[in-house]
Design a protein around this nucleic acid. Structure first.
Lengths: 363, 363
DNA sequence: CTGAAAGCGCTAACAG
DNA sequence: CTGTTAGCGCTTTCAG
């Protein structure tokens, strides 16, 4: 209220804006340096000015402890230099890996990272997508676990650049980075087969999620490739989580599998716990393998063989794709439509550890 | 460029701003609805208006798919509804727990969360502190692992509300939430003592970090309280991390401890690995306990006894403290100085699991 | 080289 | 109830 019309006050009073309660602005600096705000802006942005002016401005800015107001700048040039990453659960090491990778790329490019934990709630994901329109961030990396029609619609009409980590139905004009679950599963199954396992149980995640579905499909295929028969009894669907894995494995053990494969490390670890509890030895009696190769894989004993589906890599690529979109002003085509979507697939990698050594009967 | 002076154009052309390439604004809506931007603003903010007007505006807004520009709003009312959380390493489960808690509180209060991984680099922490001045977020939760004089200075002159998770030297006018490491360590040591352990080895983190120091101090004190002598040989400092823990424990095993206590779960897990590798049984031969009670504690075998230092609780409280500061316009005292800092301490909690069962010789 | 002035999108007086 | 207008802080023509 006091600082009214301060912009026009040429008196070097260092008072109005400087004391006006808030942060110093270019106005405070202009007053203090006795120049116009335009000059201040120029100096601060390294645009030509007379040495004397530069000096006065820089001195004033330093004395005042000036920090440019990012919000004002954003309003002016329409970009916030913020990226949003929305994933189901920050408690899952897989997403943590993505966050790390994304944060790292973003930081290097001068972007901040806004985090959203959606708890895999579709509504939340849609809300995030919708809120892209509020211009709070320049782009979004979305990692949905289920993809509904509503997602596709929202993706179609997104009001800003989006990159999806996950498998999108074809035809959706959005960049995406996917994992090769099928090949990943095959890697593990083949490895188990080659180390002498023939009765491989599979503890899978929820069947109605994209990853759950793909992994199940991959498992079937992989068994066939190895010439093993698919026994539905040896496959269980459950929630991701150690407890769930333990419970599920518990029920499978009566079927005397010689290997348990978990659709992620938590599940595998749960299975390992069930085995330990029954006094079964890993890997002598039963081999155990997981997926994701998260920190958890090395936490247990024996260390867990696991398939790295490239979370870090996917995060990195997603961030890079997004940044590319941001740097490319606009497709020459229609109004921000027709982005000619790009898709990459991160290759899986098998990390063999002690949990899948040879079977006792095999040695 | 085309949309120049659009604000003054009263013609209901629905053209200028609506087609101007970008997102719809209140101007587009005003044009389409044939009312003034002020009316649009009022309707959109639920302030009184004639039903007919309300209707026209809402219809126009819906048709245009209008989403308010958060940046513009921020510039206007000086708040972004964003919070920043800066911690050393998002890869550490402890910080993940904090992120979760903070995100949850923030979300409930309508705030977004901005994440910064500082890699425990002091410069980065200071930069974050300094960047508070750019008004990108309304407040900061900082979790430094070391606290230098520079930190204290920066904290003193912070240009916005800050809450520190960690132990601050007294006299720094900043809210903080701390863990009670000393009592936490005591909980574990006492438990080990009570279950028959007498030669307790301690794998600690870096001595020059606040947590490392406090835990070391706590360990000494706890031993004394149990009437055990402090044997410097049984204490090792190393980096946090499973590998480090394994290596460190390795070197301690020759000293025949009957328990190994890790300053965090990773360290304890590393120790467990070393024990397994030597064929020692947990807990029959050697008990193992860790700290933080992270997800890792339940990942291994046997499940790890661990002291929960309340990461989640600390995150929650920090967020709440920060939000309180934000809701409280200003201390009646001087210009945002003298915030009469508040400090809370989260109580530690011992979680007993199988890794610290009774010793074989004791049964 | 420098100053005046026009906005970026929105809210909040202040007049009608 | 509604329209006009003045900014929030900054960048950027456009004239000097």
């Amino acid at each position: 209220m006091t600082a009214k019309g301060a912009g026009a006050v040429p008196k070097g009073t260092t008072q109005a804006a400087a004391t006006g309660g808030g942060q110093p602005t270019i106005i405070s600096i202009a007053e203090r340096a006795g120049v116009s705000i335009a000059s201040v802006s120029r100096v601060l942005n390294g645009i030509g000015a007379r040495p004397a002016t530069v000096d006065k401005v820089e001195r004033a800015a330093a004395e005042l402890g000036y920090v440019p107001n990012a919000v004002a700048r954003s309003l002016k040039d329409g970009r916030t230099r913020q990226l949003t990453f929305a994933m189901p659960d920050i408690g899952n090491p897989v997403y943590v890996a993505m966050v790390r990778a994304i944060q790292s790329v973003a930081k290097a490019a001068g972007y901040r990272l806004l985090l959203h934990s959606t708890d895999a709630v579709a509504e939340d994901e849609l809300a995030v997508l919708h809120s892209l329109g509020d211009r709070t961030s320049d782009g979004l990396i979305l990692c949905p676990i289920r993809i509904t029609d509503a997602h596709v619609d929202a993706l179609r009409s997104a009001s800003g650049p989006v990159v999806v980590i996950g498998s999108l139905p074809s035809g959706v004009p959005v960049d995406s980075v996917r994992a090769d679950s099928v090949e990943g599963v095959a890697l593990a199954v083949r490895h188990l087969y080659e180390t002498g396992r023939r009765r491989i149980a599979f503890v899978n995640g929820p069947a109605d999620t994209v990853p759950g579905h793909k992994r199940g499909e991959g498992f079937r295929k992989a068994l066939a490739d190895c010439g093993l028969v698919y026994d539905p009894e040896l496959v269980v669907h459950t929630d991701f989580g150690i407890e769930s894995g333990a419970a599920a494995a518990e029920s499978l053990l009566d079927l005397k599998p010689d290997a348990v494969f978990g659709a992620n490390d938590q599940l595998a670890l749960g299975a390992a716990r069930a085995l330990h509890a029954r006094g079964l030895r890993i890997p002598e009696d039963v081999a155990v393998a997981g997926m994701d190769d998260s920190v958890l894989a090395q936490a247990g004993w024996p260390p867990l063989t696991s398939v790295d589906l490239g979370s870090t890599e996917r995060g990195r690529r997603a961030a890079e794709l997004l940044l590319q979109r941001l740097d490319t002003p606009e497709a020459p085509g229609s109004t921000s439509e027709n982005p000619t979507p790009r898709t990459t697939t991160a290759p899986p990698r098998l990390v063999v550890r002690a949990s899948t050594g040879r079977a006792a009967s095999d040695s």
